[in-house]
Amino acid sequence: MSTLRKTLEELTQATNIFATELDEAGYSNYDFTPDNSPYDLSFLSLEGLSAREDLITAAMNILRLARGPQERLTTFAGTTQGVELGTMQALVQMGIPQQVPLNGSISYTQLAASAQISPELLQRLVRLADVAG
């Protein structure tokens, strides 16, 4: 699990690589206006594409870390539907969010044992909840 400072370092590194490739392609003022944006990013090198993915991941992690558990759950519940909401409800009913420490870690095996489900099922539920919100 990333810390905020580590995530910010990753964001800075990815931004520098990504921005350098935009600069080299003539998009120094990249801002999504028609004059300053490429139609696609196919000109990026493998390193640039990787940096782009790292940039997106770091941005999502910053949002997750800045929101904290309660707001993340509230945001999740307010913006999702169907299976995703049912998944979140199941996790809450099993008491999973309350057992995840804010500092440190806990294994899927430990969490699953307390909820009396298999670690594999718990991992799938958590992944679905994470993808959705």
Results as ranks from 00 to 15, higher is better:
residue 23 D to W: 04
residue 129 A to N: 13
residue 35 D to I: 02
residue 65 L to Q: 14
residue 97 P to A: 06
residue 132 A to K: 02
residue 89 Q to W: 03
residue 67 R to P: 00
residue 109 T to L: 08
residue 40 D to L: 00
residue 48 G to C: 05
residue 62 I to L: 13
residue 117 I to Y: 03
residue 8 L to M: 14
residue 57 T to Y: 07
residue 27 Y to M: 03
residue 118 S to Q: 07
residue 64 R to F: 13
residue 36 N to K: 07
residue 129 A to M: 06
residue 64 R to W: 11
residue 111 L to E: 06
residue 129 A to W: 10
residue 101 P to Y: 06
residue 24 E to T: 09
residue 96 I to T: 00
residue 94 M to D: 02
residue 77 A to N: 06
residue 78 G to T: 08
residue 22 L to C: 08
residue 13 Q to R: 13
residue 108 Y to E: 05
residue 128 L to Q: 14
residue 5 R to F: 10
residue 15 T to Y: 11
residue 13 Q to K: 10
residue 6 K to T: 14
residue 51 A to W: 07
residue 49 L to Y: 03
residue 116 Q to F: 07
residue 124 R to C: 13
residue 88 M to V: 12
residue 92 V to R: 08
residue 36 N to R: 06
residue 43 F to P: 02
residue 91 L to K: 04
residue 58 A to G: 09
residue 25 A to I: 05
residue 6 K to H: 11
residue 13 Q to I: 09
residue 93 Q to A: 10
residue 86 G to T: 10
residue 29 N to D: 13
residue 123 Q to R: 15
residue 14 A to R: 04
residue 81 Q to C: 01
residue 67 R to L: 15
residue 59 A to F: 10
residue 64 R to E: 14
residue 86 G to F: 04
residue 18 F to D: 07
residue 13 Q to V: 09
residue 88 M to K: 02
residue 63 L to P: 01
residue 22 L to W: 05
residue 32 F to S: 04
residue 126 V to K: 02
residue 10 E to H: 01
residue 94 M to F: 02
residue 107 S to Q: 09
residue 41 L to D: 05
residue 102 L to W: 00
residue 30 Y to N: 05
residue 53 E to H: 07
residue 72 R to L: 14
residue 49 L to K: 10
residue 22 L to R: 04
residue 130 D to T: 12
residue 47 E to Q: 13
residue 11 L to T: 01
residue 89 Q to V: 09
residue 56 I to R: 11
residue 107 S to R: 08
residue 62 I to V: 15
residue 62 I to M: 11
residue 133 G to V: 05
residue 116 Q to V: 09
residue 91 L to P: 01
residue 58 A to F: 10
residue 105 S to N: 14
residue 126 V to E: 04
residue 65 L to K: 12
residue 85 L to T: 14
residue 129 A to I: 02
residue 131 V to H: 10
residue 54 D to E: 11
residue 112 A to D: 07
residue 108 Y to P: 00
residue 106 I to M: 10
residue 54 D to A: 13
residue 38 P to H: 06
residue 103 N to Y: 09
residue 125 L to Q: 08
residue 124 R to K: 15
residue 121 L to N: 07
residue 129 A to F: 08
residue 83 V to Y: 12
residue 77 A to W: 06
residue 100 V to G: 01
residue 59 A to C: 11
residue 130 D to M: 07
residue 84 E to P: 02
residue 52 R to V: 03
residue 65 L to N: 14
residue 113 A to M: 13
residue 82 G to A: 12
residue 23 D to P: 00
residue 128 L to G: 07
residue 44 L to N: 11
residue 111 L to F: 04
residue 119 P to M: 01
residue 98 Q to D: 06
residue 4 L to I: 15
residue 81 Q to R: 03
residue 72 R to I: 04
residue 96 I to M: 00
residue 66 A to M: 11
residue 51 A to S: 08
residue 127 R to H: 10
residue 93 Q to E: 12
residue 94 M to A: 09
residue 121 L to S: 09
residue 41 L to M: 12
residue 89 Q to S: 14
residue 12 T to I: 06
residue 84 E to F: 09
residue 30 Y to A: 01
residue 14 A to T: 07
residue 113 A to E: 15
residue 34 P to A: 06
residue 55 L to Q: 08
residue 15 T to F: 11
residue 92 V to M: 12
residue 30 Y to Q: 03
residue 127 R to Q: 15
residue 130 D to L: 11
residue 31 D to P: 00
residue 76 F to G: 11
residue 51 A to M: 09
residue 90 A to Y: 03
residue 5 R to S: 14
residue 39 Y to W: 04
residue 121 L to V: 08
residue 90 A to C: 06
residue 32 F to I: 00
residue 70 Q to W: 06
residue 39 Y to Q: 09
residue 98 Q to P: 00
